[in-house]
Write a protein that binds this DNA or RNA. Structure first.
Length: 233
DNA sequence: AAGTTGTCCAACCGCCCGACC
DNA sequence: AGGTCGGGCGGTTGGACAACT
């Protein structure tokens, strides 16, 4: 297969190539990317076609700049998942892993570095950090004692609001840990546990501390550092 | 105005995995 | 069991453009 590479075109796609690919997908659907060159005469390898569709031509792809909410979401997800871009992108509607990865590398990594420096410079003399684990009976107000970054541990399950696959992943996390939630037979039960803890599911992401059976809201970075000059980062 | 440097992001690359034969 | 194929992933590159000198 390696030898095939040289017969294919590389580099930026022309509008004509885009049109050919769009027509193919309209007629044949997505998949079987390696057939495109034979069927359409397009001088692009299957991989290149797939990437072009997924990252650019698909109607599911959201164009334009990232919103503040998306920034927060990506930062929090990256904090939890690391450079697992496809997983992160799966939780940011309309964004691809490539978009998220690029955006992180060019914008958010600097932003987070700015937050980190800000914490170091200011943390000791302020009440930005606190040491108690989240109290399951506490008021869920996001501005009230949000959990610190370092309180989000591997034994914290992250529950997304409604999508089944995300629930499934959260359930796996919970099931791989020990504690009260092991008694839950389904994600639905798990959700009930959360609701019984009197936390109102307002934001998309929650963490569940399996060992202390505490649940809490992952705070927006903007809520967390209200006096930080974000524009200057 | 022209050359240089920096930034952004689309696209490529190598590796991996699972399905199928 | 081993080869092939289709597809997915994360890291990296390189071209286009903007900003700067």
């Amino acid at each position: 297969m390696e030898g095939e590479h040289c017969e294919y075109k590389k580099g930026l796609w022309s509008s004509e190539e885009d049109r050919v690919l769009m027509d193919y997908v309209k007629q044949q659907g997505v998949g079987k990317w390696n057939r495109i060159a034979k069927l359409t005469g397009l001088k692009r390898c299957g991989k290149s076609c797939r990437l072009r569709w997924i990252n650019y031509l698909s109607p599911d792809v959201k164009r334009g700049g990232f919103t503040e909410e998306e920034d927060d979401l990506i930062i929090r997800l990256h904090n939890l998942l690391g450079n697992r871009w496809s997983l992160i992108a799966g939780r940011v509607p309309g964004r691809t892993d490539n978009q998220v990865k690029n955006y992180w590398n060019t914008h958010l990594s600097k932003k987070v570095k700015g937050v980190h420096n800000y914490k170091i410079n200011k943390g000791k003399s302020t009440k930005l950090s606190h040491t108690q684990p989240p109290n399951p009976n506490a008021n869920p107000n996001p501005s009230h004692l949000p959990p610190r970054d370092d309180q989000i541990q591997p034994n914290h399950a992250v529950l997304a609001s409604s999508e089944c696959d995300q629930k499934g992943e959260a359930q796996k996390l919970v099931e791989s840990s020990s504690g009260r939630c092991m008694n839950s037979s389904s994600v639905h039960d798990l959700e009930l546990v959360i609701m019984e803890d009197d936390y109102f599911l307002e934001s998309s992401f929650w963490f569940a501390d399996i060992h202390s059976a505490g649940f809490g809201l992952l705070p927006s970075y903007h809520d967390y550092f209200p006096d930080l000059d974000w524009a200057a980062l």
